[in-house]
Computed example of a mutant assay.
Amino acid sequence: MCLHGIGSSSAAFAHQLADLSTVARVVAWDAPGYAASPDPQAAPGLDGYADTAAELIRERGGRAHVIGVSWGGVIALRLAARHPDLVAGLVIADSSRGSGTDQGRAEGMRRRAAELEASGAQEFAAARAPRLLSPDAPDGLVRAVTRTMAASVRLPGYAWAAETMAATDLTPDLARIDVPALVLCGEHDTVTGVEESQRIAGLLPRGVFVILAGAGHLANQEQPAAFNDWVRAQLRITALIPEFA
């Protein structure tokens, strides 16, 4: 189960859907209020996003290994804390404990909705996308990330997601998430950063930390082959795939 970042959609997992589907059943969502998903009637809050993901997992037959990128990682961690029976393992990529760990980050996150409203999705995406990748990212990838973001974000969904991030500090939750967890971060991630991923891994009882060379904040898109190799290794460890058991 793949959960995308705050400025993205299921399209961000094209490489995972294509590659990992040879060894597992892979599902990627458009979060409520994003891309092809309808707008919720009210702000879901972090628990609402986590519970929606839990329902999707139940509908598809039980436990899942959950990949969460950035905001998706925050949702994945809350999902594992609220619904431990549904989560067999985690890959938390370029994520954080939430922007509520720092007042400045929280304020910056809350400003994003106004920026989106003022500039429109295309201009908003064009300004943000390059920051999500490493300095050496090819122009084609920058354009692809920009297109995905522009096609995915809208109000009020983006504003609700940003407020969720601003209000969240998952630090108290992490010690009770007792599943195998791979915490992965691109070496050039300047959005959430290596140190934050290290903190998450250190607080998770079964957390392992990996730096992915040559990647920025969107490691699964910038270095998909290496990212997918790590996911396969994690699936092998958790024995979700019968031939790896």
Rank of each mutant, 00 (worst) to 15 (best):
C2A: 15
C2L: 15
C2V: 06
L3I: 15
H4G: 14
H4Q: 13
H4S: 14
I6H: 07
I6M: 13
G7E: 10
S9Y: 10
S9A: 15
S10V: 02
A11P: 02
F13G: 08
H15S: 15
L17Q: 02
D19E: 04
L20P: 09
S21Y: 00
T22K: 10
V23C: 11
V23T: 11
R25S: 01
R25L: 01
R25A: 01
R25F: 00
R25Q: 04
V26N: 09
V27F: 14
V27T: 12
W29R: 09
A31G: 08
G33Q: 02
P38V: 08
P40V: 02
Q41T: 14
A42G: 13
D47G: 07
G48Y: 15
Y49M: 07
D51K: 05
T52H: 08
R63V: 10
R63L: 03
A64P: 11
V66Y: 06
I67E: 08
I67P: 04
V69H: 13
G72M: 06
V74S: 05
A76L: 09
L79R: 15
H83Q: 08
P84H: 03
P84V: 03
D85P: 06
L86P: 06
G89Q: 09
V91C: 13
A93T: 13
S95W: 11
S95Y: 12
S99G: 15
G100P: 05
T101I: 15
T101M: 10
G104K: 13
E107H: 06
G108M: 12
E117I: 05
E117K: 12
E117W: 02
A118H: 02
A118W: 00
G120K: 06
G120P: 05
Q122M: 00
A127I: 05
A127E: 12
P130C: 01
R131G: 04
L133C: 01
L133M: 02
L133H: 01
P135V: 02
A137T: 08
P138V: 02
P138A: 02
A144Q: 15
V145A: 11
T146E: 14
T146S: 15
T148E: 14
M149E: 13
A151R: 14
S152T: 03
P156F: 03
G157L: 07
A159W: 04
W160Y: 10
T164G: 04
D169Q: 12
P172F: 11
L174Y: 10
I177W: 10
D178C: 04
V179R: 15
P180N: 08
V183W: 14
L184T: 08
C185I: 11
C185Q: 11
H188D: 00
V194Y: 03
E195N: 09
S197C: 14
L203I: 09
R206Q: 14
V208P: 07
V210E: 15
H217N: 12
L218M: 04
A219Y: 01
E222W: 07
E222H: 08
F227H: 08
N228T: 03
N228K: 02
N228M: 03
N228H: 04
R232C: 10
Q234N: 01
R236W: 12
I237K: 01
T238S: 09
T238N: 04
F244M: 15
A245T: 13
